[in-house]
Amino acid sequence: MKERVEIRLAGTGGQGLITAGIILAEAAILDGKNVVQSQSYGPEARGGASKAEVIISDREIYYPKTSNPDILLAMSQEACNKYFNDLKPGGILIVDSTFITNVPSSSAYQIPITKMTIEKLKKPVFANIVALGILCEITKIVTRKSLTKAVLERVPEAFIEQNKKALQLGFRLAKKELKNRKEPEEFTADE
């Protein structure tokens, strides 16, 4: 892997992005990587801007902040507008198209994360885990195995099944998106 991969997860408070950042960092540790996670948030417990950052590397990590992330997951229009310009040239942008209608890049992965979460899992609270599944599948920044383990270690016992389902949903949504991209010309009628 590269020396230092910087990931930024951004949205609004209450979307569980800081938890997602922690889980992603724990998964990286399980993969044997070095990791630093940090966050910034407004004074509100809910609403307001929220941002989690994860840096993954095979080497020692010093500076703990990301200035030009390699990967940006945006879960609100505001966050997308604010952070898109920080993204490294050639960086990966994943947006939750439930909230982001004005996408700044044609190469962005646009997935209705929250909408699909509500549809399949009945509750929006699992959207952060679905997003992690998507991020993992698209970027391969952590292994599926480690991510699954990290998620299940973090969540209360009563919610294990739903979180497993959330991860699977994320993996599926990403696969579908990747497939659409790889073969943009081909039309498959059976989907």
């Binding site: 922690i22 960092a25 540790i29 990587k33 070095n34 990791v35 630093v36 996670q37 940090s38 966050q39 990590i61 703990p64 902040k65």
Partner: peptide, 9 residues
């Protein structure tokens, strides 16, 4: 605040 709130391995 940076050291207090950052998480590291």
């Amino acid at each position: 605040e940076v050291v207090a709130h950052m998480r590291a391995r």
